[in-house]
Write a protein that binds this DNA or RNA. Structure first.
Length: 261
DNA sequence: ATGGTGGTTCAACCA
């Protein structure tokens, strides 16, 4: 069972890329971020036509997350629990049934947090606090669980080609990194890093200044696995090839393979 | 080097 997370930076601009990716790699589940579409405007038919169920949590213009799967999607939670006043569409959680098993999967788009001297940075940190509280609750469940998404956090210096230029950025601030570490320390596994301890594994390259050509990337899209998910995990990787496509997203898909029938 | 690129929506915001 292949589970993917991918910030597509706009579903309208990326529909061809997404359907090509689905046909070429045949993933069982894809968690999408930055669909930049309302639910009604999401091109669900084009994705259903190639065999996927579609659940979206969108808003006008910005943000927006979705989960698409080859099988049924059940027990859907829309929005990150903990603050009913937060109207930004950044979190969607559901159960995906797969043969003999079920996996609990979240698609999350963590706030960017820049510039750090504005209200955007405390919003990021409070959102991470809420995620930590909810992630603690999720560990009490019995199901394999994956928190997948664009975390907008560079966990370690190895996760950036040029860590020095990110020191003032919300993605690499000590408070952002500490909050990510607290999450992991609850008992979640950054499975891609576990599988590939010695290589950068970048997932994002800026559109500007030839970042892709220079491989000036960062690793900010993550799959955090509960212990029950780690027990059945087999491999993980980054599908870098989509970054070289015509009209690419600035992020690429990150995947994990689980041994569920 | 205080720019550079891209998506959504339509002047400005977000990343």
């Amino acid at each position: 069972m292949k589970i993917v997370t991918w910030n597509i930076n706009g579903i309208k601009a990326r529909l061809n890329g997404l359907t090509t990716y689905l046909k070429e790699t045949s993933p069982d589940v894809v968690c999408l971020q930055e669909i930049k579409s309302m639910d009604a405007g999401f091109p669900r038919e084009a994705i259903e036509e190639i065999g996927y169920t579609v659940v979206t949590h969108g808003q006008k213009g910005f943000n927006g997350v979705a989960i698409i799967a080859k099988s049924d999607i059940e027990d859907i939670i829309i929005g990150l629990p903990g603050d009913d006043s937060d109207v930004q569409a950044r979190y969607l959680e559901a159960t995906v049934i797969n043969g003999g098993g079920a996996v609990r999967i979240a698609s999350l788009f963590l706030p960017n947090g820049n510039p750090i001297d504005t209200e955007k940075f405390p919003y990021k940190l409070s959102w991470m606090d809420r995620l930590e509280a909810h992630a603690r609750e999720l560990l009490n469940g019995e199901m394999p669980t994956i928190l997948a998404g664009d975390y907008n956090v560079i966990p370690q210096p190895v996760d950036a080609k040029r860590p020095d230029v990110w020191t003032g950025d919300a993605l690499f601030q000590p408070k952002s990194r500490a909050a990510f570490r607290r999450l992991v320390n609850l008992g979640w596994t950054d499975y891609l890093r576990t599988c590939h301890p010695d290589t950068p594994e970048y997932t994002f390259w800026d559109y500007q200044a030839g970042a892709w050509q220079k491989d000036n990337g960062i690793r900010i899209d993550h799959l955090l696995l509960s212990p029950q998910a780690v027990d059945v995990a087999q491999s993980a990787g980054v599908d870098r090839f989509t970054r070289g496509w015509e009209k690419p997203s600035d992020h690429v898909p990150v995947w994990v393979e689980l041994a569920l029938s």
